[in-house]
Amino acid sequence: MIDPSTPGFWQNLLGVVMVGTGQTLYMVGVALAVTILVGLPLGIALVGTERGGLFDAPFGSRAVGVATNRVLDFVVNLGRSIPFIIVMIAIIPLTRLVVGTFIGTTAAIVPLSIVAIPFFARMVEIALKEIDPGLTEAAQSLGATRAQIVRKVFIPEALPSIVLGLATTITSIINFSAMVGVVAGGGLGDVAFRYGYQAFSPTYVLVVVVIIFVIVQLIATAAAAIARRLSHASLPQPGLRGILAPGTRQQSI
């Protein structure tokens, strides 16, 4: 039992919490980068291989498209349905292969990415499905290639929704990262567990909760602001508009 009256308590707490926060940000940050790198193409592939999609007949075969779509859909559902704690244990061989060990903060990035990728891919899929098919047709009528349509139509048009989906994804990665203490991954969740639960110090739990809450809140607020800034589809109040997009000022005169 440690409590705030113990000598050096606050100093110790500060050190432990800072290390924990650093580990959490590191894990979440790297996992997030991997998630975007893999999840975005996966989401595009999910939508693209649907009937009438941009890639509905890879290598000229609709059958390949159908098969690809089914496999991807299955993989994404599988990834999303298995509890994180089980994923962490189940993919130990993979983690070992990628990182060299399955213990520690870096190793924890692998399972975190594994659960976040399908989550984010679904978010991307939903965002892309909101795009008016007419836009794709317009680009096709101009002679755009598939790659150009993805780059110039799909991603920019879906970006506001993708950013919001990303914020939700980050929140869920933070959520999962609290469990990586199981593989000695460290992070804020581990701090709360070891100091708060095993050493009976509610102060640690409170501090961890506050920090995580602040991080999530910051991300959500930032994402909403970025999405609004990116979205020209719906107009916020004219005054804000003028500040956000100087090029549009002439309209409000």
Binding site: G134, L135, E137, Q140, S141, G143, T145, P156, E157, G247
Partner: peptide, 22 residues
């Protein structure tokens, strides 16, 4: 076909403009 499409302009009932671009 893509090259030929560049020589065939098309306009649409619902305009189909990108909202992400000026």
């Amino acid at each position: 076909l893509r090259v030929e499409r560049r020589r065939i302009g098309m306009i649409f009932q619902h305009f189909n403009l990108l909202s992400s671009r000026t």
